Every structure is written in structure tokens, then in C-alpha cells.
Computed example of a mutant assay.
Amino acid sequence: MLYEHDPRGPLGEFLAPLAGYGVTITSFFSPTVTEQYPFEGPFVQPRFHGRHQLNRYADGLEKCIGCELCAWACPADAILVEAASNTPDAQYSPGERFGNVYQINYLRCIFCGFCIEACPTRALTMGHDFELAEYTRETEIYEKKDLLVPLSDGMLAPPHPMAEGLSDGDYYRGAVRGVTQSQVDWVREHRPDDPSLATAEVVSTTSEEAQL
């Protein structure tokens, strides 16, 4: 078998390995790019698909209406939704129904994001939390209480009526900016010890404002 002559010559052949070592040596003096996790927080991209969360409207009502479209869209069959009907004494979301049972099995979830694309009310979104390691299989099944975002400052804990003069369509279009006085009065009458009464911030929202 014939071998081509190395055009670098004997000296080139001798110095060739040194060129590779040079890359290694110069990296010693370069700034480190290793993230010191868990001592420093993870740096993920803004559109990173992490753990799911169930969102609320500005007055505290839940956005999930129990339509189950997220469960139908899931290719891994990781979501279970069971809806229940809202009643005048137990209004958890705008409209007729709310998600009474909501489960996500993170042993199956592939974080594809199809569920959040299917959600018609933007009730389900994905955050940046990826620390989902547990010690048992049962704890990898997240219930509604684990997924529902906490009340923000100014919100009123459901159940309570919708804002007066507004329909569920007004909620979906973003007309609700906060809690109304009638909602506060209803919760104070039915649940006078509710801790969210102390932090609820009343915002005037009328049907005329919703039409603007």
C-alpha cells in the first residue's frame, strides 16, 4: 500500500501534537463557563418548557374551565382532567364549569407543550422549574393543588361570583383587572375568616369598561 508523502515534513510532524496541546493550555487561562448548580440558579431560555402551572384571573378566579382539550392533545396521555359545574354558591371559574380534578403525571410527560397550545383560556402554561426529581412514583403525579398558582397580592380566593356586569367572554378577553366590591362583600358574608379578604384590592370593573 502506498502512503502519500506528508507535505509538512519531519518538523511539521513533530510540532503537530503541540498544536493540539496549545488549545488545551490556552483554555486554562480562559474564564470558566460552568454553572455552579445547585449553588447558583439555573439559567434557562425565556421559552424553556418546565413544570406546568394553572393560572388565575386578576380577581382570583381560576382560568381552567375543565374542557379537557389539554388531555386530548397530550401525546403521552399524561394529563387527567375531570370537570365540575359552577354553582351560585361555588363559582371557581367564569362560565359553567371548572377543573375539579387536574393531574399531570411527570413520569409520562415529555414537555412537548402541545397541552398549552390547546388550552383556549391560557389556563395552562409552562414555567422554568425543572427540578422534579422525587423519591417515589406517587409524588411524580402532581395534583391541582400542586399546579395552581398561589393568589397574588390583591386577589380574592375563590369561590366567589364573577365581576358584576361581566360575562365569561369578558373574562377571556381580559376585561377583568381585579376584585370588585360586590365580590369582597360576598366572600365576607359567606367566609368572614377568609385570609384573602385582608389583602384584596378593589378595582372598579363595569360592563361599559369591558366594551371599550
Score class of each variant (00 low, 15 high):
199 T>M: 07
34 T>A: 15
27 S>D: 11
163 A>Q: 02
149 V>N: 03
153 D>G: 05
3 Y>Q: 14
126 M>I: 01
157 A>I: 01
47 R>I: 08
57 Y>L: 07
8 R>H: 07
49 H>W: 06
69 L>P: 02
182 S>A: 15
113 G>S: 05
50 G>H: 12
13 E>W: 07
132 L>G: 11
199 T>V: 09
142 Y>P: 00
68 E>F: 02
94 P>G: 04
25 I>S: 03
165 G>Q: 03
83 A>P: 09
31 P>L: 05
125 T>A: 04
22 G>A: 08
135 Y>T: 14
72 W>G: 01
84 A>T: 09
165 G>L: 03
69 L>S: 08
69 L>W: 01
160 H>F: 03
172 Y>H: 10
185 D>Y: 08
103 Q>W: 12
47 R>V: 09
8 R>E: 06
126 M>V: 04
56 R>P: 12
107 L>N: 15
110 I>Y: 08
150 P>K: 02
68 E>P: 02
121 T>L: 08
94 P>W: 00
147 L>E: 00
138 E>N: 05
149 V>P: 01
144 K>M: 06
102 Y>I: 11
75 P>D: 10
17 P>M: 04
131 E>Y: 12
95 G>R: 04
27 S>I: 02
30 S>R: 15
201 E>H: 12
180 T>H: 05
11 L>R: 01
182 S>V: 07
80 L>R: 14
183 Q>P: 05
21 Y>H: 09
82 E>R: 13
64 C>I: 05
84 A>H: 06
132 L>Q: 15
85 S>G: 08
200 A>K: 03
180 T>P: 05
85 S>N: 14
140 E>G: 05
124 L>D: 00
83 A>I: 01
7 P>M: 04
40 E>F: 11
51 R>W: 02
132 L>S: 11
22 G>W: 05
122 R>Q: 13
49 H>M: 15
180 T>S: 11
28 F>P: 01
47 R>K: 12
156 L>S: 08
134 E>V: 07
181 Q>N: 12
36 Q>R: 14
118 A>V: 02
130 F>W: 14
169 G>T: 10
130 F>S: 12
177 R>M: 08
169 G>R: 12
160 H>D: 04
206 T>S: 14
113 G>V: 07
166 L>W: 01
65 I>K: 05
53 Q>N: 11
1 M>A: 15
113 G>P: 05
153 D>Q: 13
28 F>Y: 10
182 S>M: 09
81 V>S: 00
47 R>G: 10
181 Q>T: 11
100 N>F: 14
163 A>N: 02
166 L>D: 02
194 D>L: 06
29 F>N: 04
1 M>L: 13
52 H>E: 14
100 N>E: 15
166 L>S: 00
65 I>N: 06
192 P>H: 07
174 G>C: 08
158 P>H: 05
61 L>E: 05
26 T>Y: 06
25 I>R: 06
199 T>D: 11
45 Q>Y: 08
149 V>C: 02
43 F>M: 11
41 G>V: 06
179 V>K: 04
66 G>S: 10
82 E>C: 00
139 T>I: 04
35 E>W: 11
172 Y>T: 09
158 P>W: 01
